[in-house]
């Protein structure tokens, strides 16, 4: 009797967890650097994110190589000379969405977490708009990243070309996550 109860309990746990996750497989993250010399813009359309509603945690993972720039040479320099994506291929974010109300149609939350980029981890707070849509949620927002906070070295000669603070925008469309 107790054994059955225990098994049943584990099963509910397992299924409960798997149904309480939502994933975004084609999240979009773009960044902008505006200076008087040149404007730099790049988009990554293959950003992954997952939310675990049971713990309120959210994780983001992306390959830096997936950023597309208008100029091919900028893309190469970004990867080769600044982000060094052969040494640090990924950006990872792990945070918490406080008091996620799954029934609300629209809500704004401050997501607190840690972002790891270019081998450096920093605390980050991101104001996020959460919108409820059919069969999922859409998370959008923007925040700023200081280039020097992530140990990204800009040579003095090129400092006028690259903004000290980069604007980042994101949009994730979450759908139920099926555990395989």
């Amino acid at each position: 009797m107790i054994k059955t109860c225990f098994l049943f309990f584990i099963c509910t746990c397992y299924f409960g967890f798997s149904q309480e996750k939502m994933i975004a497989r084609q999240g979009q993250v773009s960044f902008f650097s505006y200076t008087s010399v040149e404007n730099i813009e790049a988009v990554n359309n293959q950003v992954l994110s997952i939310i675990d509603f049971s713990s309120g945690e959210i994780a983001v993972n992306m390959l830096m190589r997936a950023f597309v720039f208008k100029k091919a040479l900028m893309e190469e320099h970004f990867n080769e000379s600044y982000i060094e994506s052969d040494l640090y291929p990924k950006l990872q974010f792990l945070g918490e969405i406080p008091d996620f109300d799954t029934t609300a149609e629209a809500q704004t939350k401050i997501v607190k977490g840690q972002m790891t980029l270019h081998g450096t981890t920093n605390d980050l707070e991101i104001k996020t708009q959460i919108e409820s849509v059919e069969n999922g949620f859409v998370l959008t927002g923007n925040f700023e990243v200081g280039v020097s906070d992530y140990d990204i070295n800009v040579p003095p000669l090129l400092r006028p070309n690259i903004a000290k603070v980069i604007n980042v925008e994101f949009r994730f469309e979450f759908e139920p996550y099926e555990d395989e």
């Binding site: 997952i50 945690e57 990872q92 792990l94 996550y177």
Partner: peptide, 8 residues
């Protein structure tokens, strides 16, 4: 969570 994403 990060591991799940790594696999994705």
């Amino acid at each position: 969570l990060l591991e799940i994403l790594d696999n994705e």
